[in-house]
Simulated scan of single mutants.
Amino acid sequence: MIEASRICRCVICHDYGDRDDYDAADRGVIANVAEVGWSVTGVPADERGPGWAYTIGRWHRRGEPELAMFGLDLRVMQSCLNILGQRDGLADGQAHDDVVKGYPLRLRTVEPEWFRAFFGQGMWFYRHPPIPFLEVVWPDRDGAFPWDTGSAAQPHLWLKPDAHARNVWTQDV
């Protein structure tokens, strides 16, 4: 479990001396965090595997966990994360049945060992991870979650990497 310290060491709160090196994507994240309170970074699917999306800035702005979602259409994941991003008090084990019509979502705490593989821009932003992340987990069409079926359509980041089945999600861990 990550200790919830409110000392933020992100690139907004601390000058690391490299602000002149920020590219357009970096500046876009900072602008979104300043304007909305978070930014959603999308990693599109490619030949290596499915895409994912995650928030950056909720921890900075409100001391709330960042959110991550995997394996669906990028626009769907970004929409879900923006809806959930507005909510306070998100925590492990919660159910959210009002984000995607007809599909309940569940939140699970991400083990810090996964951060480097999936949250590169978030690590750039915070510089001193780990910070808390929650995986937004979705069910299959029959309403079963990955912990019920073992499905690899999305990673099981609530497990430590050595307890996770070897599949497309574990290739960078």
Rank of each mutant, 00 (worst) to 15 (best):
M1V: 11
E3C: 05
E3G: 05
A4N: 15
A4D: 14
S5A: 14
C10W: 00
C10P: 05
I12W: 02
H14I: 13
Y16P: 04
D18W: 02
R19M: 10
R19I: 04
D20W: 00
Y22R: 00
R27N: 14
N32T: 09
S39H: 13
S39D: 12
V40H: 01
P44Y: 07
A45G: 13
D46H: 09
E47L: 15
R48F: 12
W52D: 04
A53D: 06
Y54N: 03
T55A: 06
I56C: 01
I56V: 15
R58F: 06
G63F: 02
L67T: 00
M69K: 06
F70L: 12
F70P: 11
G71H: 10
L72Q: 15
L72R: 14
D73F: 07
V76C: 09
V76P: 08
S79L: 13
L81H: 03
I83L: 15
G85E: 04
G85T: 06
L90I: 07
A91I: 07
Q94V: 11
A95H: 15
D97M: 12
K101N: 14
P104A: 15
F115T: 01
G122C: 02
R127M: 10
P132K: 07
P132E: 02
V136P: 01
V137K: 05
V137Q: 07
V137I: 11
W138Y: 09
P139C: 12
D140H: 05
A144Q: 13
P146D: 09
G150C: 04
G150N: 01
H156N: 08
P161S: 06
A163T: 01
A163I: 02
H164R: 06
H164K: 02
H164Q: 09
A165I: 12
R166D: 15
R166P: 02
N167W: 00
V168L: 13
V173I: 10
